[in-house]
Structure formats: structure tokens, C-alpha cells
Amino acid sequence: MPLDPELNSLGFPKAPADTRVVVAMSGGVDSSVVAAQLAEEGYDVVGVTLQLYDHGAALAKKGACCAGVDIHDARRVAEEMGFPHYVLDYENIFKDAVIDEFADSYLAGATPVPCIRCNERVKFKDLLETAKDLDADCMATGHYIQRKLGDRGAELHCAADANRDQSYFLFSTTPEQLEFLRFPLGHLPSKDATRQLAARYGLPVADKPDSQDICFVPGGNYASVIEKLRPGAAEPGEIVHADGRVLGQHDGVIHYTIGQRRGLGIGGLDEPLYVVKLDVESQRVIVGPKEMLATRTVPVREINWLGDQEFQSRPEWHVSVKVRSTRPPREAVIRPTGPDTAQVELMVAEEGVSPGQACVFYQTEGSRILGGGWIWKG
């Protein structure tokens, strides 16, 4: 809530009824609570749900977002809370901006994070522009992250509940987008608090399970999706030890990721081995001991910088970084090598740093997100 009594809860100097807010509704409990809460506060709420892929495939799949059943759930919430709701067909946009790059990156031996690209290229780009076309004052989402006003404008901060924080997936939010976005759930202490609000509003999705998988990857089976998108992609090859020994055969590099230990198909060895490199050109999976996974130097590109000073105004930045969504931030030094490229030096080596993942920057003290970029091979 703003401190200025002249502003409403979304930060505008007018009555809620005169403030139009587009709510991005996935059909889940989080975005439904945001829409219901704002409607109850008297805002001019417009719910929008994106159809991102084929209904027939989506309806047969549980545990995803933006599927057919989720569109139905979002519509029910809008009807019960009394605000308009629209479904937009973004199937082609989603395929071009997210799915195709996911497939190509995976085939190149990377480990992509399509949820980040979806936020960056679809939800916070095309959908945000649609919200402006609807004369909205802002767009609200159910993400667990906080937007706070600093001396130089809106800042991005971690959610109050560290277990729900989604900052890793939102690092590419630009300052311009941040001015227009609102995240009403970011201050809540827990997901239980969100579900309690859903129950209070009597929402039909109050007990709906959280989505677990990437929306277009059923059961987390990346390889099956890649084979469907890129027929013939799974070419067989050799599993090779880092010392040059051929240990076995595989059915396609797409079945492996950096850091993988289980399911390598090379049993009977005395030492535990991990995937340390994917050689796509020669169709070889390189394995080795765990210590080969450790690295301290991480090349990063496509950096989105959210700091108050220009990114290249200093030779180095002392920050904390996340190189995986499930890992806590670790101390690091960022050394800019261009307007949107850098070498990141980790103070303590991390294992399994993989091209295609994000490297997200945080203040060493406090909750502010300073941006991030994409890890590449260098």
C-alpha cells in the first residue's frame, strides 16, 4: 500500500473506480486472487487470458498453465466477481517467440528456460501492449515479486516469501515495463495467505494445485517434445569419458543435460560420472567426475540492467547471483565487456552451470534485483 494518502493502492492519484487495470489471468489461484482483490477494492478490472497452444493437447494435460481448463477457470472467476474477461489467441506468437527457440536451444546443447522468454516476449510485451490498447492504467499479474518506488523510479525486489520468489524468471523486465506493471501478491508472507484470500472471495480455484511443469512440456519430458517439434533430432552417438574412453552409446544428445548423473546408461563403473559437456556437432555426450562440473567464470550476454547507474559506468560490480532458479544467490563480481555482455566471476565455484540458463543479479544486501542475462558457452 502506498504511503501517500492521495494515491490509491495501485499508486494512482484517483479513485479505484476510475483506474482501469488489466489482470493477466492464467486460471490459477494466484492471478485469480489478484483479480478478485482488485475487483473488491472497486477497480475497473479487465481479465485477459492467453491461449498459448492447441486446446485439444492442453485439455489432456494436467499441472500446466494457459491450458483449456485454465481458460474455463479464469472465465468462471470473472463471472463470479463481475468483471469482463477476454481470451486472446497468442498461439502463433507463443510458438514463434518461445517454443521454436526452446527447441533450437535444446538441440544446440543448451538448457533453456522458456518461462523467462514467455514473460519477456509474450506476457510483458504483446499482452502489455494490449493492456495499453484497452486504455488500462496498469497491468497486474499473480507473480511473487515486489515493485517498489526508489529515487529513480520503480525498482524490482524479491518477494517477501523467499520460498515463492519468482525473481529468477522476471529478471528481463525492463524499467519501462516495470512502470506499467503491478504485483499485488509480492508482499504476502506465504502461499497459504493467498489461498486464504481465495477462500474468502469464494473463488472456485481456491484449492486448485499449482502448475508444476513448463506449460507445453508434459511431465517434464523435454526430449519427447523436441522430437515432436524437430523430427529426426534424436541421432544416436557415443558416450565418452573426458579422458577419451568410449563408455557406451546413446539415443540422442537431447536426452541429456549438463550435470546429469542418473540414467546415463553406462553402469558397472567404479566412479560416479556426470554429464560435463554436450558435443552437438559430433553427437557425443562427454562424462566425467563431479569436480569437472565446478566453474567460477560465467560468460553472460543479453543483459538487462536494472541498476541506478549505467552498466558500463564501473569496471566491476560486486553483487550476488543465481545461476539456477533453485539455488540461493552467491557472491560474485560482474565485469562488463560491452553494453549487454559481461564475465561473471563466482567467489565460490558452482557445479552444473549450463548454457541457456539465466544468471540473475541481486544486491548483496537487501532485496533488490539488479537485472541479469543469459549464460552462454563463451
Rank of each mutant, 00 (worst) to 15 (best):
F171V: 11
A223D: 03
L7F: 09
I258H: 10
S9Y: 10
A58W: 00
P336M: 12
V348W: 13
L273E: 04
T194K: 04
T364A: 15
R20I: 05
V253P: 02
P315T: 14
E227F: 11
G109D: 01
G263R: 02
V300H: 13
Y144K: 09
P218A: 03
N8I: 11
K228W: 10
D133G: 12
C215Q: 13
A67K: 01
A64L: 13
F94S: 12
P272W: 04
R121M: 07
K14R: 15
L128I: 06
F124D: 04
A140G: 06
D243C: 08
A342S: 12
G82C: 08
P236N: 11
N221F: 10
V353I: 11
P299R: 05
P289L: 09
A199D: 11
A140P: 04
G259N: 05
K377G: 13
I369E: 10
D30R: 07
A110F: 14
G373Y: 07
D100G: 08
I116W: 02
G186C: 04
A160K: 14
V280S: 02
A15H: 15
G202T: 00
N8L: 10
A74E: 08
G237C: 07
Y90D: 03
G220Y: 00
R147P: 05
C66P: 01
R262W: 09
G352D: 10
A294N: 10
K208I: 02
V77K: 02
E80R: 14
D308R: 13
V48N: 01
K290T: 09
N163Y: 07
I116R: 05
K277P: 06
G288N: 03
P189E: 03
A234S: 14
V333N: 07
G232Q: 11
G356Q: 04
E365N: 13
K322P: 06
H143D: 04
V323R: 04
L134S: 07
P112H: 01
L203I: 00
V240D: 06
I286F: 01
Q196S: 10
D126K: 11
D73W: 02
A154M: 10
I286Q: 01
D135G: 09
E176W: 06
L50W: 08
G371E: 04
V240Q: 09
D73N: 11
L38P: 09
A36K: 01
P114I: 03
S367K: 15
G259Y: 03
A24T: 05
M347R: 15
A332I: 06
R330M: 13
